[in-house]
Design a protein around this nucleic acid. Structure first.
Length: 475
RNA sequence: GGCCCCUUCGUCUAGCGGUCCAGGACUCCGGGUUCUCAGUCCGGCAAUCGCGGGUUCGAAUCCCGCAGGGGUCACCA
């Protein structure tokens, strides 16, 4: 495969959600698997929509997920600058060329007049085409009017790497605006020029551009540009499956997932497999495998719904596979406050017990807080327990006292604790559901915890007995 | 409304004319793992392949209609 130059060209108008990052990921994968370059470009030609801090946020999102780019606004490159507002002279030059060729002209109408044309078309239930109103003798372009492309309507067919062969009739071709009256180019013009000058070979973008693709083809011809590869990826749909995933509907910033302790590896694998698979039954891919196996032609044509449950599952899967040391390093910022004074060794032994229960890092406090602090005695854990509530309180107290006694004589290895608890089970004739639950509740005061013997062993003798005593006082 | 695209279990999907009365994964349900939660193992529910015609000995797979959904018709990208 020839080295591909792909780009991700967001406008700095906000954060990136999983839908946006997917487009970037696909472009990155194509560049990496062909040994080409991945380019970041900011499309900031609409100053009104720009959001403060969005650029840094976008860059951080890509970095965090490991989608490194070879050229971009902050790192430069041979085709810079990589920010459209800094490339105005490029667009002017090409615009002038089109004017000279007779393929661009000044739009003499006031915005209200164009709007009136549009409404008229709407009333007649017809699509609006500016070229139906193309002026016969447009004024010379002085930069204060919008500059429009003089299109040559015709039917087009083209190949889309994802969608397959597409075609449209001449009725979709129109005289779109190249340069706005504020001097900035439109997306429609700027991206064509940039992709040309930056020698982009594969344009990978969202579905919303499929309808304007023939117009770009028309412009390519006017400019004598060879068609790049085009790939249109469908939108990720929101949970209702009807509309595309949007920030309005609560689509989370990918950085929020990272902050919640989702691993970049699992996010990447999850996002890649939303609407793509390699044809086998493999469900989870490393980044290297994706680079090797990803194919635009195997991207689904229809939009996939965003299923957070699947992401949670996948992240848990990754966490379980990690080495304890690796995991320990990564969760360092997620421990409960009460763990501040705990030793690394202690925290590591706690982590070993919860590793297989952890789905994402921010769950760590709720899973482990009782390892670091004595939770208040909660009588409801007994009164609401389906087995314990059937046992009378005298019996409970007696059982707990006996448990205290056997535990007290243990060396507090998990094995010894287990052995002694088993013996107590025999001597009291109790069901584990009663005895073990009782001890577990007494020593953790938590609705759920890891296995009893393991938990006790980590808590240690002093803490375990202290908590049992506290509980006994309330009985 | 015009144009374009899409349509397989609740969800993500496999499937490119016979091996599919449709396979996998997530979710859900049941059981095992001496207590809970999670994990794990075993098992289960779940798509008459949007609908209707055709082509064919044979269709989820090809063709034609229809319906539903999405996109677009901006001096937004």
């Amino acid at each position: 495969m020839k080295p591909a130059r792909t780009r991700f060209a967001p406008s700095p108008t906000g954060y990136l959600h999983v839908g946006g990052i997917r487009t970037a990921l696909f472009a990155w994968l194509v560049a990496r698997q062909t040994g080409g370059q991945f380019v970041l470009r900011f499309e900031d030609t609409d100053k009104k929509r720009e959001v403060e801090g969005a650029r840094e946020h976008l860059i951080k999102s890509l970095r965090v997920l490991g989608l490194d780019y070879d050229e971009g606004p902050d790192i430069g490159g041979p085709y810079g600058p990589y920010t459209q507002s800094e490339r105005l002279d490029h667009y002017k030059k090409w615009a002038q060329k089109l004017v000279d060729m007779g393929r661009a002209y000044a739009d003499p109408f006031a915005p209200e007049e164009v709007q009136a044309f549009r409404e008229q078309a709407q009333k007649e239930k017809k699509p609006f085409l500016y070229r139906n109103h193309r002026p016969e003798n447009p004024p010379a372009w002085d930069g204060t009017q919008p500059l429009r492309f003089k299109s040559e309507p015709k039917a087009y067919q083209w190949h889309d790497e994802v969608m397959g062969d597409l075609s449209t009739g001449p009725e979709v071709i129109d005289d779109f605006i190249l340069i706005k009256s504020d001097g900035y180019p439109t997306y429609n013009f700027a991206h064509v020029i940039d992709d040309l000058e930056m020698e982009i070979t594969h344009i990978i973008r969202g579905q919303e551009f499929i309808a304007s693709q023939p117009n770009y083809l028309n412009l390519y011809e006017a400019l004598g540009i060879e068609r790049p590869h085009i790939a249109t990826v469908p939108h990720i749909m929101g949970p209702d499956g009807k509309k595309k995933l949007s920030k309005r509907d609560g689509a989370k910033d990918v950085l929020d997932y990272v902050r919640d302790g989702f691993l970049p590896e699992s996010l990447v694998s999850f996002i890649a497999t939303m609407g793509w698979n390699d044809g086998t039954e493999q469900e989870i891919f490393t980044k290297d495998e994706l680079v090797q196996k990803f194919r635009l032609s195997r991207v689904q044509k229809s939009g996939a719904r965003f299923d957070e449950q699947r992401l949670v599952w996948m992240n848990g899967h990754y966490i379980r596979q990690m080495s304890l040391d690796d995991l320990f390093q990564k969760v360092s910022d997620y421990w409960p406050k009460e763990a501040a004074d705990a030793s690394d060794n202690y925290k590591k032994s706690v982590l070993a017990l919860v590793q297989e229960r952890l789905k994402f890092f921010s769950e760590l406090p709720e899973l482990t807080s009782f390892f670091f602090t004595d939770l208040p005695v909660n009588p409801e854990l007994v009164s609401g327990h389906k087995q314990l509530k059937k046992v009378d309180s005298g019996e409970i107290k007696s059982l707990l006292e006996q448990a205290r006694e056997t535990i007290a004589s243990s060396d507090f290895s998990a094995e010894d604790l287990q052995e002694r608890l088993n013996k107590l089970l025999e001597s009291t004739g109790q069901k584990p559901a009663v005895l073990f639950s009782l001890v577990r509740i007494a020593t953790t005061q938590a609705p759920a915890s890891p296995g009893l013997a393991d938990t006790l062993a980590v808590l240690g003798k002093e803490v375990s007995l202290r908590r049992i005593d506290a509980m006994l006082q309330t009985l």
